[in-house]
Simulated scan of single mutants.
Amino acid sequence: MASKMASCIFCKIIKGKLMSSRPKIPCFKLFENEKTLAFLDINPLSQGHALVVPKFHGEKLTDIPDDHLTDILPITKRLVKATGAVEYNILQNNGKGAHQEVGHVHFHMIPKPNPQEGLGISWPQQPTDMDKLKALFEDIKSKV
């Protein structure tokens, strides 16, 4: 994991070290404590689009210890209030197939001020087989 951390752009932002071969990437820090960093996204989907990042390096949510996640939602809620967003998305992707671009857990707070700005998604609902859904429920519930 050390080599992944060494090349991780979010780890570099957290440590204040950015690649010398590239132009300096600005970090507009909105919040920071010992376990979490929040900053504006430099490629925003809308005004106020921010990232909330645990300082512990892990590619997927399941890689992050619970005690490094306790501030995520309260900080995100503060960002929502600070931006004045009325409608917004909170997004967290895990793996390239799920559209994760940076291999370090991060949460997006994306204001949705109008149909043209913010996150655009489709919701391809699948038909439900209630017997299969009940079996799935029982399987997952037994493991929680």
Rank of each mutant, 00 (worst) to 15 (best):
K134P: 00
F107T: 10
L133W: 00
Q125C: 10
Q125D: 09
P127Q: 13
D71R: 06
N114A: 06
F107N: 03
P127D: 13
Q100C: 07
H108E: 06
Y88L: 02
D129G: 06
V86C: 04
E101R: 08
G95Q: 11
K132E: 11
T128F: 03
V102M: 01
E138Q: 06
P124R: 15
H99Y: 05
D129P: 04
T62W: 03
D129E: 12
H99E: 11
I110Y: 06
G103S: 13
E138F: 01
D139V: 02
Q92C: 12
Q100T: 02
W123T: 12
Q126F: 04
I72V: 15
P115S: 11
T70V: 15
Y88M: 03
P111S: 12
Q116Y: 07
A135M: 01
F137V: 04
P127W: 03
G97T: 07
G95P: 04
T76G: 15
D63M: 08
D63V: 04
K77P: 00
P74G: 11
I121F: 14
T76P: 00
L79D: 04
E138C: 03
K77N: 09
E101N: 08
T83H: 07
L79C: 05
L133D: 03
I75F: 10
G118D: 07
Q126W: 05
N114G: 12
H104L: 00
P65T: 14
T62C: 13
L69K: 07
T83V: 03
V102Y: 00
V102T: 05
N94I: 09
L91C: 11
G103E: 11
L91F: 03
P115T: 10
L79S: 05
K112S: 11
I75D: 07
D129S: 11
P65F: 14
D67R: 02
D66V: 11
T128P: 00
T76Q: 07
F137Q: 06
H108Q: 06
I90P: 00
P111G: 13
G84C: 10
T70D: 12
E117L: 08
D66T: 14
D139E: 09
E117F: 02
V105F: 05
K81V: 09
T70H: 14
K96R: 07
G84F: 04
N93C: 15
H108Y: 02
R78Q: 11
T83Q: 06
A82S: 13
Y88Q: 06
H106N: 03
S122Y: 08
L79N: 02
I110A: 12
K141S: 13
P115F: 10
P127K: 15
T83Y: 06
V105I: 12
Q100H: 04
D129C: 06
T62G: 07
K141R: 10
A82M: 07
G84W: 02
A98E: 01
S142E: 03
A82T: 04
L79I: 15
P124H: 13
K112F: 03
F137R: 09
P113V: 11
N94R: 10
P74C: 13
N93I: 00
F107E: 03
M109V: 12
